[in-house]
Amino acid sequence: MSWARKLGVGGALVAVFAVTAVVGPWVAPHDPLRIDLAHSFAPPSAEHPLGTGDNGVDLASALLYGARRAGVVGLFVVVFSALVGTLLGAWAGLRGGRLDSWLSVVADVVQAFPGVILYIALLALVDRPGTTHVVGALCVSGWVLYARIARAEALTLREAEFVQAATALGATRGRVLWRHVLPNLLGPIVIQATSGFGGVVVAEATLSFLGLGPTDGVSWGALLDQGSGVLLRFPHVALVAGSAIALTVFGFNLAGDRLRDLLDPRGRR
Protein backbone atom coordinates (compact mmCIF):
# COMPACT_ATOMS: atom_id res chain seq x y z
CA MET A 1 0.00 0.00 0.00
CA SER A 2 2.79 2.38 0.87
CA TRP A 3 4.33 1.59 -2.51
CA ALA A 4 1.15 2.60 -4.24
CA ARG A 5 1.18 5.90 -2.38
CA LYS A 6 4.85 6.48 -3.11
CA LEU A 7 4.23 6.14 -6.83
CA GLY A 8 1.72 8.96 -6.65
CA VAL A 9 -0.18 10.37 -9.59
CA GLY A 10 1.94 8.50 -12.14
CA GLY A 11 1.27 5.20 -10.42
CA ALA A 12 -2.45 5.97 -10.29
CA LEU A 13 -2.56 6.75 -14.01
CA VAL A 14 -0.64 3.57 -14.80
CA ALA A 15 -3.07 1.58 -12.63
CA VAL A 16 -6.06 3.11 -14.41
CA PHE A 17 -4.50 2.26 -17.76
CA ALA A 18 -3.74 -1.31 -16.67
CA VAL A 19 -7.27 -1.92 -15.38
CA THR A 20 -8.76 -0.41 -18.55
CA ALA A 21 -6.56 -2.58 -20.74
CA VAL A 22 -7.58 -5.72 -18.85
CA VAL A 23 -11.33 -5.23 -18.42
CA GLY A 24 -11.93 -2.66 -21.20
CA PRO A 25 -13.33 -4.93 -23.89
CA TRP A 26 -15.59 -6.68 -21.35
CA VAL A 27 -17.22 -3.52 -20.06
CA ALA A 28 -17.39 -1.66 -23.37
CA PRO A 29 -21.00 -0.69 -24.08
CA HIS A 30 -20.80 -1.38 -27.83
CA ASP A 31 -18.82 -3.26 -30.44
CA PRO A 32 -16.18 -0.68 -31.43
CA LEU A 33 -16.47 -1.68 -35.08
CA ARG A 34 -20.27 -1.61 -35.29
CA ILE A 35 -21.30 0.73 -38.06
CA ASP A 36 -24.23 3.06 -37.51
CA LEU A 37 -24.24 5.43 -40.44
CA ALA A 38 -27.18 7.43 -39.16
CA HIS A 39 -25.15 8.61 -36.17
CA SER A 40 -21.73 9.52 -37.59
CA PHE A 41 -19.74 12.00 -35.48
CA ALA A 42 -22.55 12.49 -32.99
CA PRO A 43 -21.79 14.51 -29.86
CA PRO A 44 -21.84 12.75 -26.46
CA SER A 45 -25.22 11.37 -25.45
CA ALA A 46 -26.69 8.89 -22.99
CA GLU A 47 -26.15 6.02 -25.40
CA HIS A 48 -22.69 7.15 -26.51
CA PRO A 49 -21.04 8.78 -23.48
CA LEU A 50 -18.13 10.14 -25.52
CA GLY A 51 -20.03 10.55 -28.77
CA THR A 52 -19.40 8.66 -31.99
CA GLY A 53 -16.75 8.73 -34.68
CA ASP A 54 -16.61 7.91 -38.36
CA ASN A 55 -19.46 5.60 -39.43
CA GLY A 56 -21.06 6.08 -36.03
CA VAL A 57 -18.68 3.86 -34.04
CA ASP A 58 -18.98 4.35 -30.29
CA LEU A 59 -15.93 6.32 -29.10
CA ALA A 60 -16.05 5.11 -25.50
CA SER A 61 -15.92 1.50 -26.69
CA ALA A 62 -13.17 2.28 -29.19
CA LEU A 63 -11.20 3.87 -26.38
CA LEU A 64 -11.60 0.80 -24.17
CA TYR A 65 -10.63 -1.63 -26.92
CA GLY A 66 -7.74 0.63 -27.89
CA ALA A 67 -6.41 0.45 -24.33
CA ARG A 68 -6.29 -3.34 -24.60
CA ARG A 69 -4.36 -3.05 -27.84
CA ALA A 70 -1.87 -0.51 -26.43
CA GLY A 71 -1.46 -2.62 -23.30
CA VAL A 72 -0.85 -5.87 -25.16
CA VAL A 73 1.66 -4.32 -27.57
CA GLY A 74 3.39 -2.45 -24.74
CA LEU A 75 3.61 -5.52 -22.52
CA PHE A 76 5.01 -7.77 -25.23
CA VAL A 77 7.55 -5.26 -26.46
CA VAL A 78 8.74 -4.14 -23.03
CA VAL A 79 8.99 -7.64 -21.56
CA PHE A 80 10.77 -9.07 -24.59
CA SER A 81 13.11 -6.10 -24.99
CA ALA A 82 13.98 -5.91 -21.30
CA LEU A 83 14.56 -9.65 -21.04
CA VAL A 84 16.69 -10.05 -24.14
CA GLY A 85 18.47 -6.72 -23.75
CA THR A 86 19.33 -7.25 -20.10
CA LEU A 87 20.63 -10.78 -20.58
CA LEU A 88 22.68 -9.88 -23.65
CA GLY A 89 24.05 -6.69 -22.16
CA ALA A 90 24.90 -8.22 -18.79
CA TRP A 91 26.56 -11.24 -20.39
CA ALA A 92 28.55 -9.04 -22.77
CA GLY A 93 29.64 -6.73 -19.98
CA LEU A 94 30.69 -9.64 -17.80
CA ARG A 95 32.56 -11.52 -20.49
CA GLY A 96 33.96 -8.69 -22.54
CA GLY A 97 35.98 -9.72 -25.57
CA ARG A 98 34.62 -10.43 -28.99
CA LEU A 99 30.98 -10.91 -27.97
CA ASP A 100 31.05 -7.50 -26.35
CA SER A 101 32.51 -5.80 -29.43
CA TRP A 102 30.02 -7.43 -31.77
CA LEU A 103 27.14 -6.52 -29.55
CA SER A 104 28.09 -2.85 -29.54
CA VAL A 105 28.51 -2.88 -33.33
CA VAL A 106 25.00 -4.33 -33.76
CA ALA A 107 23.62 -1.87 -31.21
CA ASP A 108 25.27 1.04 -33.04
CA VAL A 109 23.79 0.00 -36.38
CA VAL A 110 20.29 -0.51 -34.99
CA GLN A 111 20.41 2.81 -33.16
CA ALA A 112 21.59 4.62 -36.28
CA PHE A 113 18.01 4.41 -37.57
CA PRO A 114 15.86 6.98 -35.81
CA GLY A 115 12.69 5.32 -34.36
CA VAL A 116 9.95 5.51 -36.95
CA ILE A 117 12.43 5.22 -39.84
CA LEU A 118 13.48 1.74 -38.73
CA TYR A 119 9.89 0.63 -38.10
CA ILE A 120 8.81 1.78 -41.54
CA ALA A 121 11.77 0.07 -43.21
CA LEU A 122 10.93 -3.15 -41.34
CA LEU A 123 7.18 -3.02 -41.95
CA ALA A 124 7.86 -2.45 -45.64
CA LEU A 125 8.88 -6.13 -45.67
CA VAL A 126 5.41 -7.48 -45.02
CA ASP A 127 2.44 -7.31 -47.26
CA ARG A 128 -0.13 -6.41 -44.64
CA PRO A 129 1.35 -5.55 -41.26
CA GLY A 130 -0.46 -7.15 -38.33
CA THR A 131 -0.07 -6.67 -34.60
CA THR A 132 2.67 -9.30 -34.51
CA HIS A 133 4.69 -7.42 -37.10
CA VAL A 134 4.34 -4.15 -35.22
CA VAL A 135 5.44 -5.84 -31.99
CA GLY A 136 8.38 -7.42 -33.84
CA ALA A 137 9.47 -4.12 -35.39
CA LEU A 138 9.34 -2.37 -32.03
CA CYS A 139 11.38 -5.17 -30.42
CA VAL A 140 14.13 -4.93 -33.05
CA SER A 141 15.22 -1.59 -31.65
CA GLY A 142 13.69 -1.97 -28.20
CA TRP A 143 16.31 -4.26 -26.67
CA VAL A 144 19.26 -1.96 -27.41
CA LEU A 145 18.72 0.53 -24.61
CA TYR A 146 18.30 -2.24 -22.02
CA ALA A 147 21.45 -3.92 -23.30
CA ARG A 148 23.42 -0.69 -22.97
CA ILE A 149 22.17 -0.12 -19.42
CA ALA A 150 22.80 -3.72 -18.36
CA ARG A 151 26.26 -3.73 -19.94
CA ALA A 152 27.31 -0.54 -18.17
CA GLU A 153 26.06 -1.89 -14.83
CA ALA A 154 27.73 -5.26 -15.40
CA LEU A 155 31.06 -3.57 -16.15
CA THR A 156 30.96 -1.92 -12.72
CA LEU A 157 29.64 -4.99 -10.93
CA ARG A 158 32.34 -7.17 -12.49
CA GLU A 159 34.91 -5.30 -10.42
CA ALA A 160 32.85 -5.34 -7.22
CA GLU A 161 34.31 -7.26 -4.30
CA PHE A 162 31.43 -9.66 -3.85
CA VAL A 163 31.59 -10.65 -7.51
CA GLN A 164 35.36 -11.12 -7.37
CA ALA A 165 34.89 -13.19 -4.22
CA ALA A 166 32.29 -15.39 -5.87
CA THR A 167 34.58 -15.95 -8.84
CA ALA A 168 37.51 -16.72 -6.55
CA LEU A 169 35.38 -19.29 -4.75
CA GLY A 170 34.89 -21.04 -8.05
CA ALA A 171 31.44 -19.85 -9.12
CA THR A 172 30.87 -20.35 -12.83
CA ARG A 173 30.24 -17.34 -15.00
CA GLY A 174 26.61 -18.32 -15.39
CA ARG A 175 26.16 -18.48 -11.65
CA VAL A 176 27.85 -15.13 -11.14
CA LEU A 177 25.56 -13.64 -13.77
CA TRP A 178 22.41 -15.18 -12.31
CA ARG A 179 23.04 -14.85 -8.58
CA HIS A 180 25.15 -11.73 -8.30
CA VAL A 181 25.01 -9.51 -11.36
CA LEU A 182 21.40 -9.72 -12.56
CA PRO A 183 19.74 -9.03 -9.18
CA ASN A 184 21.92 -5.97 -8.75
CA LEU A 185 21.14 -4.36 -12.07
CA LEU A 186 17.39 -4.79 -11.90
CA GLY A 187 16.81 -1.29 -10.49
CA PRO A 188 17.83 0.72 -13.56
CA ILE A 189 16.16 -1.83 -15.83
CA VAL A 190 12.83 -1.52 -14.02
CA ILE A 191 13.06 2.27 -14.21
CA GLN A 192 13.75 2.15 -17.93
CA ALA A 193 10.98 -0.39 -18.51
CA THR A 194 8.47 1.89 -16.79
CA SER A 195 9.14 5.02 -18.82
CA GLY A 196 9.85 2.82 -21.85
CA PHE A 197 6.31 1.45 -21.70
CA GLY A 198 4.99 4.94 -22.38
CA GLY A 199 7.37 5.22 -25.32
CA VAL A 200 6.06 1.97 -26.79
CA VAL A 201 2.46 3.18 -26.42
CA VAL A 202 3.37 6.32 -28.39
CA ALA A 203 5.27 4.34 -31.02
CA GLU A 204 2.33 1.99 -31.52
CA ALA A 205 -0.06 4.94 -31.78
CA THR A 206 2.28 6.72 -34.19
CA LEU A 207 2.48 3.72 -36.52
CA SER A 208 -1.30 3.33 -36.54
CA PHE A 209 -1.66 7.07 -37.01
CA LEU A 210 0.52 6.92 -40.11
CA GLY A 211 -1.54 4.02 -41.40
CA LEU A 212 1.20 1.43 -40.91
CA GLY A 213 -0.50 -0.63 -38.24
CA PRO A 214 -2.97 -3.47 -38.62
CA THR A 215 -6.23 -2.42 -40.20
CA ASP A 216 -8.38 -4.76 -38.13
CA GLY A 217 -9.24 -3.88 -34.56
CA VAL A 218 -9.03 -0.54 -32.85
CA SER A 219 -5.97 1.53 -32.04
CA TRP A 220 -5.75 4.92 -30.35
CA GLY A 221 -3.43 6.08 -33.10
CA ALA A 222 -5.84 5.16 -35.87
CA LEU A 223 -8.65 6.84 -33.92
CA LEU A 224 -6.54 10.00 -33.63
CA ASP A 225 -5.80 9.88 -37.35
CA GLN A 226 -9.51 9.59 -38.07
CA GLY A 227 -10.18 12.49 -35.70
CA SER A 228 -7.48 14.67 -37.27
CA GLY A 229 -9.16 14.31 -40.64
CA VAL A 230 -12.37 15.87 -39.31
CA LEU A 231 -10.71 18.16 -36.80
CA LEU A 232 -12.39 21.28 -38.12
CA ARG A 233 -15.93 19.99 -37.81
CA PHE A 234 -15.79 17.31 -35.09
CA PRO A 235 -12.84 17.98 -32.78
CA HIS A 236 -14.19 15.61 -30.08
CA VAL A 237 -12.89 12.49 -31.85
CA ALA A 238 -9.27 13.66 -31.86
CA LEU A 239 -9.64 15.10 -28.36
CA VAL A 240 -10.74 11.76 -26.91
CA ALA A 241 -8.03 9.69 -28.60
CA GLY A 242 -5.24 12.23 -28.12
CA SER A 243 -5.98 12.73 -24.42
CA ALA A 244 -5.96 8.97 -23.84
CA ILE A 245 -2.50 8.64 -25.38
CA ALA A 246 -1.08 11.72 -23.65
CA LEU A 247 -2.43 10.76 -20.20
CA THR A 248 -1.06 7.23 -20.51
CA VAL A 249 2.40 8.44 -21.51
CA PHE A 250 2.27 11.09 -18.80
CA GLY A 251 1.49 8.40 -16.21
CA PHE A 252 4.32 6.09 -17.25
CA ASN A 253 6.83 8.98 -17.44
CA LEU A 254 5.85 10.21 -14.01
CA ALA A 255 5.94 6.73 -12.50
CA GLY A 256 9.37 6.16 -14.09
CA ASP A 257 10.71 9.43 -12.64
CA ARG A 258 9.35 8.54 -9.23
CA LEU A 259 10.84 5.06 -9.37
CA ARG A 260 14.20 6.61 -10.23
CA ASP A 261 14.02 8.78 -7.13
CA LEU A 262 13.08 5.76 -5.03
CA LEU A 263 15.47 3.16 -6.44
CA ASP A 264 18.50 4.99 -7.74
CA PRO A 265 20.44 6.96 -5.15
CA ARG A 266 22.72 8.44 -7.82
CA GLY A 267 19.78 10.17 -9.44
CA ARG A 268 18.96 12.16 -6.31
CA ARG A 269 19.76 15.80 -6.54
Partner: peptide
Protein backbone atom coordinates in the same frame (compact mmCIF):
# COMPACT_ATOMS: atom_id res chain seq x y z
CA UNK B 1 6.86 16.99 -18.04
CA UNK B 2 3.94 18.14 -20.17
CA UNK B 3 6.15 18.54 -23.23
CA UNK B 4 7.46 15.02 -22.85
CA UNK B 5 4.03 13.49 -22.31
CA UNK B 6 2.32 14.94 -25.36
CA UNK B 7 3.21 12.96 -28.49
CA UNK B 8 3.58 14.97 -31.69
CA UNK B 9 0.74 13.07 -33.36
CA UNK B 10 -1.50 14.80 -30.81
CA UNK B 11 0.30 18.12 -30.37
CA UNK B 12 0.07 18.82 -34.11
CA UNK B 13 -3.73 18.51 -34.37
Amino acid sequence: VAGLAIPNIWLGP
